[in-house]
Amino acid sequence: MSTTVSTPDADETCAYCGSRIFDHDPICVRDCDDGCGSPTYFCNYACLSAHVDENDLTAGNACEWSPGE
């Protein structure tokens, strides 16, 4: 599987708050459990964190780590 890296448009907006991502500290996220689909852009880590919390995206993932396993 390969992923193409590209720079988003200058007017790309945050998936969470709608702000222009390049006015802040942008983050690109892909769901690689679903075929590495289209990237989703967030203007900063706060918006990404809020999106993750509101959509319960940590349930069943690697949030619990046991070094002995």
Rank of each mutant, 00 (worst) to 15 (best):
M1W: 05
M1P: 10
M1N: 00
M1K: 08
M1C: 07
S2D: 08
S2I: 10
T3P: 00
T3F: 12
T3H: 10
S6K: 07
T7G: 00
P8D: 02
P8E: 02
P8F: 03
P8C: 05
D9K: 04
A10T: 02
A10D: 02
D11T: 15
D11H: 14
E12N: 02
E12P: 04
E12I: 01
T13D: 00
T13M: 05
T13G: 06
T13Y: 02
C14S: 04
C14F: 07
A15F: 09
A15Y: 07
A15G: 12
Y16D: 02
Y16G: 12
Y16M: 11
Y16I: 01
C17F: 05
G18A: 05
G18I: 07
G18K: 02
S19P: 03
S19L: 07
R20I: 13
R20M: 10
R20D: 04
R20S: 08
I21N: 01
I21F: 06
I21T: 02
F22K: 01
F22P: 02
F22E: 00
F22C: 03
D23Q: 15
D23T: 11
D23V: 05
D23S: 14
D25F: 15
D25K: 15
P26N: 02
P26I: 02
I27C: 03
C28D: 13
V29T: 14
V29E: 11
R30W: 07
R30I: 11
D31W: 08
D31T: 04
C32P: 04
C32Q: 09
C32K: 08
C32H: 13
D33P: 06
D34Q: 14
D34I: 10
D34L: 14
D34P: 06
D34E: 14
D34H: 13
D34R: 15
D34W: 07
G35K: 01
G35S: 04
G35M: 03
G35H: 06
G35Q: 05
G35D: 09
C36N: 09
C36R: 01
C36S: 10
G37W: 05
S38L: 13
P39G: 02
P39H: 05
P39M: 03
T40C: 09
T40V: 15
T40F: 06
Y41V: 02
Y41G: 01
F42V: 01
F42K: 05
F42C: 04
F42W: 05
C43R: 00
N44D: 14
N44K: 08
N44Q: 04
N44A: 07
Y45E: 06
A46F: 07
A46G: 06
C47G: 05
C47R: 00
C47F: 03
C47W: 05
C47Y: 04
L48I: 01
S49E: 08
S49L: 09
S49H: 11
S49I: 03
A50I: 08
A50W: 03
A50E: 08
H51I: 09
H51C: 12
V52W: 13
V52I: 15
V52K: 12
D53T: 14
E54Y: 08
N55G: 05
N55L: 09
T58S: 12
T58I: 12
A59G: 04
A59H: 09
A59L: 13
N61F: 14
N61S: 11
N61L: 14
N61P: 00
C63V: 10
E64Q: 09
E64T: 14
E64S: 11
E64C: 12
W65C: 04
S66G: 00
S66W: 06
P67G: 00
G68V: 06
G68R: 06
G68I: 03
G68Y: 07
E69D: 09
E69K: 10
